[in-house]
């Protein structure tokens, strides 16, 4: 580790020679990645009159009017609550149902596991548009159209493949001896899962829950189709359909965008390492 500079992988450093140049390129990439978000932040605190002129890039005057408007005089807060309810229940359902299925795939001798895992993967590749019209008719038939239940249930099912995939790989990492020991001690498979595996797989469960939550919070097409009123709209739908009477209220949209993004971006930054671990589970070893 001491002569790390000489051991640079693939010798990329030999191409750049200077660490400084690499850092410069990286900084440019960083500007490209974060610039648009920062600009949205700048937009959200500029008064309306200043939004229709450039320069200045750095705001000369600041205002909280946009935030005040979207938080107190629009249905955005309602949408945020809806999104939280939908995402939390979708996460709960996907983790419970997916966890049971993943445990089976990891530990129990059922037939055709590769086929099932393949199908799980295939389901995650479904184009949502292919099911949207029958799903809409089904929810309407069940009297669930324009309810949060319809959106939450749909999100749970479409997040299932992800949950199953991640949890299966986490359960597989736990030693099989634990399972046999629990069985010999007279546990049923379900009891073995609940009292032996679940506590040990807690990190895996957290990662899966995080990813399902982010997926559901951000999902747009199902939420747009299955809801029809302010009372049930989720946050992304609210941001997409932001009302403009005469012209587009860019400042309000910017403020609403940041408010909607904050929870998921915060989670993602805090748990970045775990998210990568989860998404690469079973695909990248190590």
């Amino acid at each position: 580790m001491s002569d790390a500079g000489e051991n640079g992988r693939g010798g990329v450093m030999h191409w750049f020679r200077f660490r400084g140049l690499a850092l410069c390129i990286l900084a440019l990439a960083g500007l490209f990645c974060l610039g648009p978000v920062l600009w949205q932040g700048v937009t959200s605190i500029k008064p309306d009159e200043d939004l229709v002129r450039l320069p200045p890039i750095v705001p000369e005057r600041m205002t909280a009017a946009h935030y005040e408007r979207v938080l107190f005089h629009s249905s955005l807060v309602r949408s945020l609550v809806n999104s939280a309810v939908v995402a939390a229940s979708a996460t709960a359902v996907a983790i419970v149902v997916g966890g049971l299925c993943a445990f089976t795939l990891a530990r129990l001798p059922i037939a055709g596991k590769p086929v099932i895992l393949g199908l799980v993967l295939a389901t995650s590749m479904f184009p949502p548009i292919a099911v949207i019209s029958p799903l809409y008719l089904l929810m309407r038939g069940l009297g669930l159209r324009d309810t949060l239940i319809a959106v939450g249930l749909t999100h749970a099912v479409y997040a299932l493949p992800l949950a199953i995939w991640i949890l299966t790989s986490f359960f597989r990492q736990l030693p099989g001896e634990l399972y046999y020991a629990a069985r010999v001690d007279g546990c049923t498979p379900l009891r073995a899962l609940l009292s032996v595996f679940l506590p040990l797989a807690r990190p895996g469960l957290a990662v899966a829950a995080l990813l399902v939550f982010i997926f559901s919070w951000n999902e747009f097409m199902f939420a747009l189709t299955l809801t029809a009123s302010d009372a049930t709209r989720t946050a992304p739908v609210a941001v997409a359909l932001f009302p403009g009477l005469y012209e587009i209220p860019w400042g309000d949209i910017a403020a609403a965008s940041l408010v909607v993004t904050l929870p998921v971006a915060g989670l993602a930054v805090m748990f970045q390492r775990h998210i990568v671990a989860g998404l690469t589970a079973g695909s990248v070893k190590g």
């Binding site: 990645c33 982010i214 951000n218 910017a254 971006a265």
Partner: peptide, 17 residues
């Protein structure tokens, strides 16, 4: 941060941005 933020942002929001 620069890597994970664009990923986590709702697609709808990125379209508005």
């Amino acid at each position: 941060v620069m890597i994970v933020v664009p990923w986590a942002i709702p697609t709808v929001v990125s379209a508005q941005i």
